[in-house]
Amino acid sequence: MTTPKPGGAVARRAAERAPGPRQARAVRTRALVLEAAAQLFARRGFQSVTIQDIAELAGATKGAVYFHFANKEAMAVELVHSFYTAATRQASELVDPKLEPLEAVRELTRATGRSLRDEPVAQAAVRLQAERVSIDVDLPLPFVDYIAFISLLLTRAADAGLLPPHVEPATLARTLVSSFFGVQHVSWILNDRTDVVERIDELLDLLLPS
């Protein structure tokens, strides 16, 4: 078998597939627009933010913003989807039979708290969900996958004898997720989430067996 030489057909096809400077610029502009939208939605809410606000923070023109997104609603959908995709990926990594299930629940919950404290996309996604009735678009449904992952981990904990016999894993999962999002909301309003991980630890200590 002949080894393809540099500059041959294989190299030419690879070069054709590689993004050029214009495409790389477009990818970067799109990311900057989404980042700007996340920061503004998280800080000010969906309704008070304009396309011009997003363009100015991103260092782009309104035309560039509209090139990538038809409207603010499209950005909202993408931001919420991005947050849930990242959360689902993280949860999938923790749903591992080799991990102690209650520790996995703690780590997943604390990791979500850290993302809400530190990451504008997570902050924007949660605020957008809270404002979903005033946003004229169908946002991804919240909580369902998160409850399912926690329920799976708690079921494994129950099977391993780590939960009291009277505790129903699905009920505890719903209670924990509902309480978690309430705790993060209170931490957001009172302290801009600076203490959210500590408040989550308090919650976990109350709800989960030590």
Rank of each mutant, 00 (worst) to 15 (best):
T112S: 13
S92V: 03
S134Q: 09
L108Q: 08
A125F: 05
L139H: 02
S92F: 03
D136P: 00
P101G: 10
D138Q: 10
R89C: 07
R110D: 02
V133F: 04
Q90S: 15
Q90G: 12
A130M: 12
L141G: 01
R114Y: 13
Q129Y: 05
Q129A: 05
D118L: 13
P142N: 04
R89K: 11
A91R: 02
P142I: 07
E100Y: 07
L139V: 02
L102H: 02
T112Y: 08
T109S: 15
R114T: 11
Q129N: 12
P120Y: 02
L139G: 02
D118I: 00
L141M: 06
A111Q: 13
L139I: 01
E93T: 13
V105S: 08
Q129E: 15
E103Q: 14
R127S: 00
V121A: 12
L128M: 05
Q90R: 15
A104R: 07
L94G: 06
L108T: 01
Q129C: 07
L139N: 03
E103D: 15
E119M: 05
Q123S: 04
P97M: 03
P97H: 08
E93K: 12
V95I: 13
A104W: 01
S115K: 15
P101Q: 09
V95W: 00
L139D: 00
E93L: 14
V95C: 12
T109Y: 05
S115D: 12
L102Y: 08
L141W: 05
R114Q: 13
K98C: 01
K98F: 04
P140I: 07
K98G: 01
T112V: 11
E100C: 04
I135T: 01
P140N: 08
L141D: 09
L116M: 14
G113C: 11
L141Y: 10
S115L: 14
L99Y: 03
E107G: 00
E119D: 15
L116Y: 14
A124N: 04
T109N: 05
S134A: 11
V133Q: 08
E93A: 15
L102V: 11
Q123Y: 03
G113L: 10
G113V: 06
L102W: 08
Q123R: 14
R132M: 08
L116G: 09
P120S: 07
L141C: 00
D118K: 07
T109P: 07
R110L: 15
P101F: 00
V137M: 02
E93H: 10
P120C: 03
A91W: 02
R110K: 12
E119G: 03
P142H: 09
A111L: 12
P120D: 12
R114L: 14
